[in-house]
């Protein structure tokens, strides 16, 4: 059974916005964010993302599982970048050593002010983009996915397929849980103490094999079920859900485009650049 993301109808300001406008805004925001390493600009985007999160009235309870997966990944990536090199070749050249971490013997690892700010930028960029991304499944009515994708210019067939693919993630998660329970009843434990990496991966087979095979088989059933209900029968299909742009949606799209253009122009003109607070260098 295809399930949906945990969606709650809240009638918030965010939810009242047209989903197409929200996706367009998210795309413009992401395009603007990936252009910049300026901490001051990133803080602005971060604040905007947090405002949207608060306006959507999402609770930590609901989104906890998302963050439990995403935050460790982001932290890991940022730490690896910071420790393996200076990071951001294109963002800055000069470095100002800030403090050192002792390694072994006389060796030390030097952290520069630039490195530190770069890591902070990287972290905030990823968290901001994840927040914008998170708002999509948690605030778009699952019944509107298909017609939203269609409204963004996808073909009918592709929009229906994307709708289903989008809901595949929570569906697989649910199957995964059932399989985990079934295997635990056979004495299986996900985390084996003292097992090496290779053994740990092998240890996933009792979960991965049934879930993968189940997903393939149910995919075939869904195709049959769609065929039996005339999927693809006509060159153009109709949609039961209708979306209508309101003035506020146009404002949102315009704001997104404007911010994107402004960021791009400001970057070209050199107003936005990698920025290290002077107190960090001289203090």
């Amino acid at each position: 059974m295809i399930v949906t993301w945990s969606y709650k109808e809240r009638n918030t300001f965010i939810q009242r916005l047209d989903p197409r406008a929200r996706i367009i805004f998210m795309l413009t925001a992401i395009l603007a964010i990936i252009q910049t390493w300026d901490f001051r600009v990133l803080i602005f985007w971060f604040a905007l993302a947090m405002t949207a999160y608060v306006l959507a009235k999402l609770t930590w309870q609901e989104t906890r599982r998302f963050w439990m997966v995403v935050l460790p990944i982001i932290t890991l990536l940022v730490t690896i970048t910071a420790l393996t090199g200076r990071g951001g070749e294109e963002a800055y050249q000069a470095t100002h050593p800030l403090f050192t971490l002792p390694l072994w013997g006389d060796h030390v690892f030097t952290i520069s002010a630039e490195q530190l700010v770069f890591a902070a930028c990287q972290f905030i960029r990823m968290v901001t983009m994840a927040t914008f991304g998170l708002l999509i499944p948690f605030t778009i009515h699952p019944a509107h996915y298909g017609v939203t994708f269609k409204g963004l210019g996808m073909s009918d067939k592709f929009a229906v397929a994307t709708d289903l693919a989008f809901r595949l993630v929570p569906t697989v998660a649910k199957d995964f849980q059932t399989t985990l329970d079934a295997q635990r009843a056979r004495g299986y434990e996900l985390e084996r103490k003292g097992a090496g990496l290779f053994q740990q991966i092998r240890n996933l087979a009792p979960l991965v094999v049934p879930v993968t095979i189940g997903t393939i088989l149910s995919g075939e059933d869904i195709i049959d079920a769609m065929d039996l209900r005339a999927f693809g029968a006509k060159p153009k299909r109709t949609w039961i859900v209708e979306l209508h742009y309101e003035p506020r949606d146009y404002i949102l799209i315009a704001a997104g485009v404007l911010l994107l253009v402004a960021t791009t122009v400001a970057k070209l003109l050199g107003y936005i650049h990698f920025w290290v607070p002077s107190w960090l260098i001289h203090g």
Binding site: I2, T4, R167, R229, G232, R237, T238, I240
Partner: peptide, 17 residues
């Protein structure tokens, strides 16, 4: 295939335009 009852029941009719 539909996330909501209305969408699911409509699926065949949508395909028939």
């Amino acid at each position: 295939v539909g996330a909501y009852v209305l969408n699911d029941v409509a699926f065949g009719l949508e395909n028939l335009a």
